[in-house]
Nucleic acid binder design. Structure first.
Length: 801
DNA sequence: TATTTCTGAGTTTTT
DNA sequence: CTCAGAAATA
């Protein structure tokens, strides 16, 4: 093949075909400008936190289009999350009047899905293949174990799932694996079984989407060549997070394997990433891809974006200083044109409760005195369990908050049930979906019947759907009726608009009726209604069918590539497109209190976001860095990068808190301050005591020695009766005083285990009692309001007979 | 089949 | 402690 850019590595100077004062280029700094206007050669852009990475990426695309160096169809831009892809698209269409159609901008999985739909035959998949999410995959794996009669204690389903996903991330099929021990041998066998089962059912998991698409390109030369010629410009976001397979997939589009050596075909691959923000090694991300990329694509020197537009000087200085403790780095120093700002504030507190309370007081201060809006305040923590104490304190203080993470819309049980019915309309052989709803709502098909059905299907080598008639007895009759019902639903939905299809299924399946009779059913019905709305807006806003549309093959390729359906213009049905949407875009995490809410999330979830004020909580050895990461130097370095990510989220104010004691796994644990605190530049850090020191200093607090014992001076006023009593009197080194069995308060005796009444929270059960006299407090599990600690001296608790 | 009791594990997570 | 999933029981 002719290679128009064979001398790519020479990095010729930029030769823009438009003047340098082109509106697109306005306001770019020299490094950004260099990246945006780079000639079409492979390049690595090292984009520091807050350095305008997304801007560079989108402006680059806009520049290529505006200068006629590329057409929309000739660009492929890939991200990790739908959010990032959407943002890119949004910013791009704000820059250029542009037809988004036909542009390949999306997530790795989204783009691979597109390829597989277009070439499902070549990829060996049925046209109606469905996508398994992580839950579905685990279910499918459990079925494999059951069929093999392997006890789940012998091979843990989760472990097998990890094994299979890991193998796929490395691009390995069962036959690529060799066993050293019996355990692994068995897992490989089960991996093989799992693959066969998925193939039989016409389903693919997330890893399979990537791996199939990779193999499709690898094994079908004409197809590969076609896409290589089409996508002259490849842009990869968050390159440090790519796994082996994702990098291998990109290489398929950017060159060929010649005798085991990668030879680039001259496409302009722009990899954008930051090795200092690589925090996903645990799920297969391989920072090493960056150095491989430099070597395999002959990159002379990376373009470094080191000008930070986000944070004040002290914060950047702290980030730079901390990350400097890592040995494995490409090397980068963030700088800012902003002033120094306030130094970082480090606070030590006696317990996680006091930590939460201190944070709340500070939030109040930020909101009232400094006018920081609630949604510009973020509370970060290393692990999800830590949110509890913070949430409790926020709730009691009446401050609106929003917690990231948790169940997402398309992952809710009722929504998954509805989707399973819809999937069965598309692909009746999807046994995962079949099993999910064969007896939901209950229709007299018990475990016994299902057992028989699976046996019959196994013997006949067919799907559960097709084996339904083979089961006798009452259960068999119910099965036949169920299958008939599915068939009727399918017939009824033919040619109908998506909305009607879903509404029909919700009614005909009996889901709505079933939830109508349930206690908590109202909310579930609401969610099902929301599913209809989601489908409606999907059809009108997103459109459908576009997914599978590919540009016509060029002449040479068209002659040799088999004429797969979608490639010749056939489009996906609205239902199929919507199901894909549901599988690949699980939807927003539950949006809670909307706009004016303090944001709570793990440090991982905070990546890519920024806030005026950030609290990093729980900075203790064992927690952050986490115990489990300390066994290897790499682990510790990743924790440090995580800390780096956390620090660089803050624009103006950064607080770092740690507690001497913390409730963990039901018992109080004692922690020493995180080593990361010692790795900060002391000139940018202010060690605070709570209130008292601050009050004495008349504002932002006085400096104290690192680790100085903090004497909290909580007043009784204005904190509400739900606030847990302070542990001020407890010396740091001694265990907390043991709980007395009973406490006398407001004349009545409150005991562990008894039921009590509270004027605001109603009835609850006393779970525990701690402390004595004025400090006595009780933990009460209120039916409607959850578990709370109440100071008995203040709370009005009355025993209930 | 539905509810309750028990057991065990407990970093980080998108697709 | 707290939640999820399995086993046990009505």
């Amino acid at each position: 093949m002719t290679d128009p850019f064979a001398d790519a590595a020479a990095q010729r100077p930029a030769a823009p075909t438009l003047p340098a004062d082109h509106p697109l280029l306005r306001g770019l700094n020299p490094e950004q400008l260099a990246a945006v206007t780079l000639p079409p050669v492979p390049a690595l852009v090292l984009a520091g936190a807050g350095s305008g990475k997304t801007r560079v990426l989108t402006t680059r695309i806009a520049w290529l289009l505006a200068t006629g160096q590329a057409s929309p169809g000739g660009i492929l831009a890939v991200t990790f999350t739908n959010k990032a892809a959407k943002e890119m698209l949004a910013r791009l269409s704000a820059m250029l009047p542009l037809n988004v159609r036909g542009m390949w901008i999306g997530t790795f999985h989204g783009l691979c899905h597109r390829l597989l739909r277009a070439h499902h035959q070549s990829a060996g998949l049925p046209a109606t293949f469905q996508i398994l999410d992580t839950q579905d995959q685990l279910g499918a794996i459990k079925r494999v174990l059951k069929e093999r009669r392997i006890d789940e204690d012998r091979v843990k389903p989760k472990e097998l799932q990890w094994f299979i996903a890991g193998a796929k991330e490395d691009g390995l099929r069962p036959h690529d694996l060799s066993a050293r021990d019996e355990d692994t041998r068995l897992k490989i066998e089960l991996y093989r079984d799992y693959e066969a089962q998925c193939q039989r059912e016409g389903v693919v998991d997330f890893g399979e989407l990537m791996l199939r698409a990779y193999e499709l390109l690898r094994d079908h030369e004409p197809l590969r060549v076609h896409y290589q010629r089409r996508f002259r410009h490849l842009l990869i976001d968050e390159f440090q997070d790519t796994n082996r397979l994702q990098y291998a997939w990109i290489k398929q589009l950017a060159g060929d394997d010649v005798g085991g050596r990668f030879v680039p075909c001259g496409n302009a691959v722009m990899a954008v990433g930051d090795d200092d923000q690589s925090i996903y090694a645990f799920r297969g991300a391989r920072v090493g891809n960056m150095s491989d990329f430099v070597r395999e694509f002959g990159i002379a020197a990376p373009i470094k974006l080191e000008e930070n537009y986000r944070s004040v000087g002290h914060i950047l200085h702290a980030a730079n200083h901390l990350i400097d403790h890592n040995r494995q780095r490409l090397g980068k120093q963030l700088r800012t044109a902003q002033g120094q700002g306030d130094p970082l504030r480090v606070v030590e507190l006696p317990s996680d409760f006091e930590e939460a309370q201190w944070v709340i007081d500070e939030i109040r201060h930020l909101m009232r005195e400094d006018g920081v809006p609630a949604h510009e305040i973020a509370l970060l923590y290393r692990s999800n369990a830590q949110s509890r104490a913070l949430e409790g304190a926020l709730f009691n203080a009446g401050i609106p908050y929003r917690v990231y993470g948790g169940l997402r819309f398309f992952e809710r049980a009722e929504v998954k049930h509805a989707l399973a019915y819809l999937r069965l309309l598309e692909n009746p052989h999807d046994d995962t979906s079949f099993l999910r709803v064969v007896n939901f709502p209950p229709r007299g098909i018990g475990a016994r019947t299902i057992e028989q059905l699976q046996q019959a299907a196994r013997e006949a080598g067919c799907s559960l759907h097709d084996a339904a008639t083979a089961v006798g007895g009452k259960g068999g009759a119910h099965l036949v009726a169920f299958v008939a019902k599915l068939d009727v639903m399918r017939e009824r939905s033919a040619g109908r608009p998506l909305r009607e299809i879903i509404e029909g299924v919700l009614a005909d399946s009996g889901l709505i009726d079933h939830y109508r009779g349930e206690r908590e059913g109202a909310e579930r019905i609401e969610n099902l209604q929301e599913l209809v709305n989601a489908a409606e807006s999907f059809v009108t806003q997103e459109g459908f069918g576009r997914e599978a549309v590919a540009l016509p093959l060029d002449e040479t390729a068209a002659a040799t590539v088999d004429a797969d359906a979608a490639e010749t213009g056939e489009t996906l049905s609205p239902l199929a497109a919507f199901l894909t949407h549901a599988a690949l875009e699980a939807g927003e995490h539950q949006a809670q209190a909307g706009q004016a809410a303090v944001q709570l999330m793990t440090v991982h979830a905070a990546k890519g976001l920024e806030f005026d004020a950030v609290f990093i909580t729980g900075l203790e050895e064992g927690l952050f860095p986490h115990d489990n990461s300390l066994s290897s130097p790499d682990g510790l370095e990743e924790e440090r990068r995580l800390m780096y990510v956390a620090i660089t989220r803050a624009r103006r104010r950064l607080y770092l808190t740690h507690a001497q004691t913390r409730m963990l796994h039901g018992q109080t644990r004692y922690h020493i301050p995180s080593r990361f605190l010692d790795e900060l530049p002391q000139e940018s850090v202010q060690w605070l005591s709570p209130r008292r020191a601050r009050a004495a200093a008349g504002g932002w607090g006085a400096a104290a020695a690192p680790g100085a014992l903090v004497q909290p001076a909580w007043g009784r006023s204005g904190l509400g009766d739900e606030r847990p009593a302070g542990l001020a009197g407890i010396p740091a080194a001694a265990p907390p005083s043991s709980s007395p069995p009973a406490v006398s308060a407001s004349g009545a005796e409150i005991r562990k285990g008894m039921t009590v009444f509270h004027t605001k929270f109603g009835e609850g059960r006393v779970l525990a009692i701690e402390g004595q006299g004025a400090d006595a407090r009780a933990q009460v599990d209120f039916r409607r309001h959850g578990t709370k600690w109440l100071a008995l001296a203040v709370a009005k608790l009355t025993p209930v007979a």
